[in-house]
Design a protein around this nucleic acid. Structure first.
Lengths: 107, 107
DNA sequence: GTTAAACGCAATTAAACGGTTGCGTACAGC
DNA sequence: GCTGTACGCAACCGTTTAATTGCGTTTAAC
């Protein structure tokens, strides 16, 4: 399982447009090399490399060295935990709304 | 609706343990003052104030001035959009898995 | 074995972040 | 009207972040 605090790291990793786009792009399950991911991005390959390292440290992505290139693959668990975290917060809110509604009807 | 890039700001706001805890705490619908939220936190009231401003700018929280105190209330929409964003990514991943499974069974 | 592609490493820079401190202001209560 | 509470503002500081640049290394391909 996961403490809510552990998800903060995942959110921080997703909290950058470039990285969020990288994750979204990789979520189709295909593995991609760094230059492949960097082509079309408005920044250097090195910058993309750093973003990928951040994602890797957050566990959102896995690196596999193949010959002369590093290929990255999406990893599902951390994002699922983050999603569960948001759903827990949303559920708490929904229950609060339900309670308010009940109290309003009780008038 | 929302562009995926818009959710990055929400993730960035949630990407700090203190702020994530604040949001979780406020998700019960109750409004709380700054000192109320700062008491028990391992930092200054000013630090908490800054975190609340970040959350407010991300739209995750709403401030209402009441007399001499600022009370903060949870706002649901941005987190729901962020949740939808994560679900979209997860769904893409699930579809990819399903495709792989189909191809494996086709052998 | 040269060459060019794909990458890693290190230094550097500007800006943003997280946090503190000090001080001034608004306001509730006696 | 005074006093103390709850804030807001602004300066400041150390650290982290995002990004660039330059250079070296590995490896595929001819």
């Amino acid at each position: 399982m996961s403490k809510p605090e552990a998800s903060a790291g995942v959110f921080a990793a997703l909290g950058d447009p470039t990285r969020l786009a990288l994750v979204a792009r990789l979520s189709d399950g295909a593995s991609r090399s760094i230059t492949e991911l960097a082509s079309g991005a408005p920044m250097t390959r090195q910058a993309v490399t750093k973003h990928l390292e951040v994602l890797e440290n957050a566990g959102l992505v896995t690196r596999a060295r193949e010959g002369r290139e590093s290929r990255f693959v999406y990893a599902a668990e951390p994002l699922n935990e983050a999603r569960a975290c948001l759903e827990a917060i949303g559920a708490r809110w929904d229950e609060a709304l339900a309670r308010l509604k009940t109290m309003a009807e009780r008038d």
